[in-house]
Design a binder for these strands. Structure first.
Length: 641
RNA sequence: GCUGACGUAGCUCAGUCGGUAGAGCACAUCCUUGGUAAGGAUGAGGUCACCGGUUCAAUUCCGGUCGUCAGCUCCA
C-alpha cells in the first residue's frame, strides 16, 4: 500500500492512499465539501470526482459556487437532456451542447418541430433518468475508433475529423443508452442533478452558419438545490415584469408603429418628459465639465461619407441615398464627420485644445430586422456623443476626465457596479505601431490612476483605434455595455485635421469619440428596467397625484395643485368620479411617487395626507412642508425608491 | 437577413372543424360623494395585420408582404 502526496490550493499537503479519488479526498476534508463537490482539478486538468489519483498531485475541488463547478453541472445537465431526447426520439442527432453563462443548451437535429409541451415531456424523461442514477462513464478512443463509433452521425464525424490525428485522445461520455463525444468532465452520476428546468426552444444552425443545417436549440438551467431554481425562475419573472416594452406600454412612455417603420421610437408625453429631464441634466453636466454643445444636420453629401470612409467601412449600415440637386445625400449614421467639419472651419491653435464637443445627435442605421428589440436595438437613435480633439500631451488627462464623468453619470442614475474593458489592436489592422501603443497605454494608465480594475480585450479594438468599454450592472445584476471611449487615428488623417503647435508647426490632433450613456433610447430602455418603471422623484413623469376624497374638496385640492405647479412640480389633479380606493390603485399601478389625499381633515388643517408609492400611507403633513421635502429630493436627484 | 412561433377592440386574451365575432380591463353617459389597491347601471369600440389565391362564401384554408416574439449572426 503506497501513499501519495496531495497538495491543495492553499499550499497545504496531505498523504493519501494511492488510487484515492477527489470525492474521497473532499470527504476527508469535510462532509459539507463532499456533499457540495461537483468536479475537481488534478494537476491543472479538470476531471471527474471519481478519477483515481495514482501519483503526487495538486488537487482542487470545485462546488457550484465556482464557475468551474457550474460549468460542469450545466454541461452534465445538457447531456442528461440529450439522453432524454434520444430515448424519446431515437432518430435525433446532436450538434453541440455546452454550458453558457447561465445554464446550457443543446442543438438537436430532429424532424419534428419541438414545442413547449415537448419540453415538459423531455423534463419528465430527464427526471426518470435521474431516478435511475446513471453514471457518466468516460471512454477514451483513438481518432479511427471514434470515427467508427460515430459512423453515420454527420455532426460528430465532422467534429472528430477536425481533431489533430496524433496528439488528441478522443473521449466519450455515456450514461445508459446515450453516448456522446465530449471532453468532459462530468458529474459522477445523474443523481447529482437536483433541480432543473427547460426554458425555451428556438432555431439555430450547425456551427452558427445559416448556410448549414438548421437545428433546434433547447435552453435549460439546473441547480443543486430546488430553492436556487425557484429563485432563478423568480428572477426571470421579475425580468419579465420589468421588461421596458411592457412598462413602456403600461406607463404610456413610448410606442413603435408597424405602419410607420420598425425600430423607430415615438416618445409619448410621459416618456418625453423623462427623456427631457435626462437630457437637461446631461447638458448641464456637460457644460460643467468643460464641454461645448453642438447641433449638426441629419444628412450630408456622399463626398463627405467618402472622405470619412463610411461608404467603405459602414455602408451596409447606411440607408440608401436621396437625390438633391442631382447629388447623393446620405442620412447620417454617425455625427463625427460633421463635428470634424466644424473643427476645420478655421485654423486651430494648440491654445484651443482640448476641444470637447458634445451633441445629442440623432443618427439612423440599418439594422437587420431580426435584431430589433424595443428601445435596446433600434434604427433611429440619439447618441450622447462627444468628440474630444486634443494634443498628445493631453490625452491621458482627457481620458481620466471622461472616465470620471462617466462614473458620475452612472452613479447619479443608481448604477453602482461598473466594469472596464480595454480593447487592443486587432490583428488585421495596419498602421502606426507607436500610435496604437501610446494610445492603448494612455487608456490603461488612466484607469490605473483612477484605481480602477480592468480587463484586456485582446484584439477587440476598432480598426481605427483602441478603446475602453464600460459595462454597467442594473438592479437585477444584469450587465449592459453602455459607455465607450474610443481613439480614432483614422478620421483626423482622412480629413487632414491639424492644429498649429507651440513650435509653429502643423500637428495632427488626437481624436476621441465617447458616449457616456450610449444612446438615449437604449439608456432609457435600461433605465426603465433598472427602476422597474418606478422612476425616482426627479425623473418621474408625474411626480404627484392630488386625489380629493370627494368633489366637496375640489376647491382645496385645486389650491394644493396650484402650490405644486408654482414650484414646477409635475402634478395631476384627479377629478375622476371614482372612489378614492379606485384612484389610489390606479396611481399606484402608474408608479407615481406621491399621492396627496385631501378631504375635510386636510382642508381644516392646511395639510395633505401623503401616500408614497410602494410604501403606502405616510400620514398628514403641512402642504408647504411636503413641497419643500419633495423639492429637496428633486434637486438632489435622489435615487429614492 | 436566417430558423421557428405568433398577429382578433386602446390593453390582456377567448372563439370560428369556412357562413364577417366575444370576455375582462380601459373609454363614454348616468346613478352614487365615497377616507387609503377595483361601487353600480347603460353604452360606444373590430375591413379578425396587409395583399393576392382557392371557394357560392375567407377572420378561418393556401401563397406572399409587413410586423412582433424566442434564438442565430451583429451592435449604441
Amino acid at each position: 500500500m503506497s501513499l501519495i502526496k496531495i497538495t491543495f490550493p492553499d499550499g497545504t499537503a496531505k498523504e493519501f492512499e494511492k488510487g484515492i479519488t477527489p470525492l474521497q479526498i473532499s470527504k476527508a476534508i469535510s462532509n459539507n465539501l463532499a456533499k457540495e463537490a461537483i468536479v475537481s482539478e488534478i494537476n491543472g486538468i479538470r476531471r471527474e470526482l471519481n478519477t483515481p489519483i495514482n501519483e503526487d498531485s495538486q488537487v482542487k475541488i470545485f462546488t457550484f459556487d465556482n464557475l468551474e463547478g457550474k460549468d460542469t453541472y450545466w454541461h452534465s445537465t445538457s447531456h442528461l437532456m440529450a439522453h432524454a431526447i434520444k430515448e424519446i426520439y431515437p432518430e435525433a442527432k446532436f450538434g453541440v451542447g455546452p454550458s453558457i453563462d447561465s445554464g446550457f443548451y443543446y442543438d438537436i437535429d430532429i424532424n419534428t418541430q419541438l414545442t413547449e409541451e415537448d419540453l415538459i415531456k423531455i423534463e419528465k424523461k430527464m427526471q426518470s433518468i435521474i431516478d435511475r442514477n446513471d453514471s457518466f462513464v468516460r471512454n477514451e478512443l483513438s481518432k479511427v475508433e471514434a470515427l467508427k463509433f460515430f459512423n453515420g452521425d454527420q455532426y460528430k464525424v465532422e467534429l472528430i475529423e477536425a481533431f489533430d490525428e496524433n496528439n488528441t485522445i478522443i473521449s466519450t461520455y455515456g450514461e445508459g443508452i446515450f453516448t456522446d463525444l465530449c471532453t468532459g468532465p462530468h458529474l459522477p452520476s445523474t443523481k447529482y442533478i437536483k433541480a432543473f428546468k427547460l426554458l425555451s426552444v428556438s432555431g439555430s444552425y450547425w456551427r452558427g452558419d445559416e448556410k448549414k443545417a438548421r437545428m433546434q436549440r433547447i435552453y435549460g438551467i439546473s441547480f443543486p438545490k430546488q430553492k436556487m431554481l425557484d429563485d432563478y425562475l423568480e428572477f426571470l419573472e421579475e425580468a419579465k415584469r420589468r421588461d421596458h416594452r411592457k412598462l413602456g406600454k403600461d406607463l404610456d412612455l413610448f410606442s413603435i408603429h408597424e405602419e410607420a417603420g420598425a425600430g423607430l421610437i415615438y416618445w409619448h408625453p410621459k416618456g418625453a418628459r423623462v427623456r427631457n429631464e435626462i437630457e437637461d441634466f446631461w447638458k448641464k453636466e456637460h457644460f460643467k465639465n468643460g464641454y461645448d454643445l453642438l447641433y449638426s444636420p441629419h444628412i450630408g453629401k456622399s463626398q463627405l461619407w467618402e472622405t470619412s470612409g463610411h461608404l467603405v467601412n459602414f455602408k451596409e449600415n447606411m440607408y440608401s441615398p436621396m437625390q438633391i440637386d442631382e447629388q447623393d445625400y446620405y442620412v447620417k449614421p454617425m455625427n463625427c464627420p460633421f463635428h470634424i467639419l466644424m473643427y476645420k472651419s478655421k485654423l486651430r491653435s494648440y491654445r484651443d485644445l482640448p476641444l470637447r464637443w458634445a451633441e445629442l445627435g440623432t443618427v439612423y442605421r440599418y439594422e437587420k430586422s431580426g435584431v430589433l428589440h424595443g428601445l435596446l436595438r433600434v434604427r433611429g437613435f440619439t447618441q450622447d456623443d462627444a468628440h474630444i480633439f486634443c494634443s498628445k500631451e493631453q490625452i491621458e488627462s482627457e481620458i481620466i476626465e471622461v472616465i470620471r464623468f462617466s462614473n458620475f453619470m452612472w452613479n447619479k442614475f443608481g448604477f453602482g457596479s461598473l466594469k472596464y474593458y480595454v480593447s487592443t489592436r486587432p490583428d488585421k489592422v495596419s498602421g502606426d505601431d507607436e500610435l496604437w501603443e501610446q494610445a492603448t497605454r494612455s487608456l490603461e494608465i488612466a484607469l490605473e490612476k483612477e484605481g480602477l480594475k480592468y480587463e484586456i480585450d485582446e484584439g477587440g479594438g476598432a480598426f481605427y483605434g483602441p478603446k475602453i468599454d464600460i459595462k454597467i450592472k442594473d438592479a437585477l445584476n444584469r450587465e449592459w455595455q453602455m459607455s465607450t471611449i474610443q481613439f480614432d487615428f483614422n478620421l483626423p488623417k482622412r480629413f487632414d485635421m491639424k492644429y498649429i503647435g507651440e513650435d509653429g508647426k502643423e500637428h495632427v490632433p488626437f481624436m476621441v469619440h465617447r458616449a457616456l450613456l450610449g444612446s438615449i433610447e437604449r439608456f432609457m430602455g435600461v433605465l426603465i428596467e433598472h427602476y422597474a418603471g418606478a422612476f425616482p422623484d426627479w425623473l418621474a413623469p408625474v411626480q404627484v397625484a392630488v386625489v380629493p376624497v370627494s368633489q366637496n374638496y375640489f376647491e382645496y385640492a385645486q389650491k394644493v395643485v396650484s402650490l405644486l405647479l408654482d414650484e414646477n412640480i409635475r402634478v395631476e389633479f384627479d377629478k375622476r368620479n371614482e372612489k378614492i380606493g379606485y384612484k389610489i390603485r390606479d396611481w399606484e399601478t402608474q408608479k407615481v411617487p406621491y399621492m396627496l389625499i385631501v378631504g375635510e381633515k386636510e382642508e381644516t388643517n392646511g395639510t395633505v395626507s401623503v401616500r408614497k408609492h410602494k410604501h403606502g400611507d405616510q400620514g398628514e403633513i403641512k402642504t408647504n412642508e411636503f413641497i419643500s421635502v419633495l423639492k429637496d429630493s428633486i434637486n438632489k436627484k435622489n435615487n429614492n425608491n
